[in-house]
Amino acid sequence: MTGLATVMLSVIDTGEQITFWICGSLALIGALGMVLSRKAVHSALWIAMTMINLACLYMAQGALFLGMVQIIVYTGAVMMLFLFVLMLVGVDSSDSVVETIRGQRLAAGLAGLAFALMLIAVISRVTLGDVGTQGADAVYGGNLQGLAALIFGKYLLAFEVTSALLITAAIGAMILAHRERIEPKKEQKDLSKERFLSGEHPGSLPPPGVYARHNAVDTPALLPDGTLAENSVPASLRARGAIRTVDRALGDEVQQLAAGDGSLEGEDLR
């Protein structure tokens, strides 16, 4: 008779009822989506939806501050941080869905269902003392004032001890992620020494050759003795064997050209 639903129907006006049914079902859909979606990012977005709808419900019941905090802190800050972490870890990494214990998922589902039925059965028959947000707000002249009186009055110690939690969390993050430098930072001099001692080419590599008809990156430069400078071509091209052959003028053709023999003009220099 005096079940929760009846109490709600008698106290709540139509607008709030409509809000309840819309936001309530959306929150539920979000929660289901969070559990059922395969990708972590989707899960995170689903839960953000649930949180926003819960915030709407809080506000509809007159808990304005709580609603705003829910949106700003949970949906805005915490969930977005969560998304950042997911992005850092890698969006692609999806969890293994293989059951390590056989029948675990079925058992968990049944247990969850039983728990939900128990909660519904109990809560739907409950009668609540009818204080309401309006009554609670009236004591200190407003919602925010009432919360302030509780946080900085009655629950001051709990509020202060919460700082221990935050400090612990910060230290924990430091321990698990921070790497203090062990050896001194390398100066330019050390880096330079290291470069020469390593035995590899110390400076920047020679640029590709520039010829009358070719200057692309696959054209090797020539060393003073006429041999090819292999390292002037990118390693990937070298590995592929895509080094262009260098056109060379033969010695006597050069002599002829120098002597002004025009018969070679227009021919390929091979």
């Binding site: 221990a164 612990t168 924990g172 698990l176």
Partner: peptide, 19 residues
């Protein structure tokens, strides 16, 4: 002496242990 303080205390003692 109240459940709220007890919950905060529960977390304060648990979190360092997890680490």
């Amino acid at each position: 002496n109240d459940l709220l303080t007890m919950f905060v205390a529960l977390e304060v003692l648990s979190l360092p242990l997890y680490l």
